Computed example of a mutant assay.
Amino acid sequence: MSRRHETGPGGAWRHHSLTIVFGLLLLLFVVGQAVAGTAEYNETARTDGVQQISFARYVSSSSFLVDLVENWQSEYLQFTLYILLTIWLVQRGSSESKKPGETGRESDEEQLVGRFARPDSPRWAQVGGWRRAVYSHSLVIAMTVVFVLSWLAQAVTGRVAESEQRMRDLLDPVSFGDYLVSPDFWSRTLQNWQSEMLAIASMAVFAIYLRERGSPESKPVGMPHDVTTADD
């Protein structure tokens, strides 16, 4: 049996180890965030003289959920913009970029669609019409949907958390519309967005001059700085 068709734990690890490791790291960090968040919440509760809560109650609270999804939405915004902008914009010498002069959507032949599709190409890449159009943009569509949903989740949970805090201060709860234009919502949103833009920009520039041997995110160690890809 070929390696391509291997099954079982060994085959799963060999072919999907990157996803498995990042999935486990995600779970570890979420649990860590929940543990630290519970401790912080209860420390504030003791200071304010209000009731402390259990770990289970904290992970289902708006305080935990708003902190969780506000990071998710910024990450998916980052990747959505990155995927779209790298169609037309370049950074000479960066492994994160196309070569200068090769911008745009590319031809059907380059994209292996329609009559240029391979026998093992995805079915929707071989056919025409709306199915190929949707599949041609399916990555950005998926990223955008997750971004919008997590951004809305941040707005909903943030509004609940803000209202709970206001009620503890004997103030009226805030409406959803008022929260969408509130400093708290945009402070949470923009501080995440700016950090993602910084990360993407620095990665594109660092990849011109710095290397990590063996990583697909890096050029070969000996490649000149001003060469964008190995095909230059």
Rank of each mutant, 00 (worst) to 15 (best):
G128F: 12
W130R: 03
W130C: 05
W130T: 05
R131T: 06
R131V: 07
R131Q: 15
R131W: 14
R131L: 15
R132T: 03
R132I: 02
R132E: 10
V134N: 02
V134E: 00
Y135R: 00
S136Q: 05
S136L: 08
H137S: 09
S138K: 04
V140H: 00
A142P: 01
A142L: 14
A142G: 10
V145F: 10
V146D: 10
V146N: 09
F147S: 00
V148L: 15
L149V: 14
S150N: 13
L152Y: 11
A153C: 13
Q154L: 13
Q154M: 14
A155N: 04
V156N: 03
V156W: 14
V160C: 02
A161Y: 04
A161G: 02
E162S: 06
E162K: 02
E162F: 05
S163K: 05
E164P: 00
Q165W: 11
Q165R: 09
Q165S: 13
R166I: 15
R166A: 14
R166M: 15
M167P: 02
M167K: 06
M167N: 02
R168G: 10
D169M: 13
D169W: 05
L170P: 00
L171Q: 15
L171P: 00
P173R: 03
P173T: 04
V174S: 08
V174E: 13
S175V: 11
S175F: 12
F176D: 09
G177Q: 06
G177V: 01
G177M: 08
G177L: 12
G177F: 05
G177Y: 04
G177S: 10
D178I: 03
Y179N: 07
L180V: 11
S182N: 07
S182R: 02
D184W: 04
D184A: 13
D184S: 09
D184I: 12
F185Q: 08
F185I: 05
F185R: 03
W186E: 04
W186G: 04
S187C: 06
R188E: 09
T189F: 14
T189H: 07
L190V: 10
L190R: 04
Q191F: 09
Q191P: 00
N192I: 04
N192K: 04
W193D: 02
W193M: 07
W193E: 03
Q194S: 02
S195N: 01
E196S: 00
E196C: 00
E196M: 07
M197I: 06
L198H: 00
L198E: 09
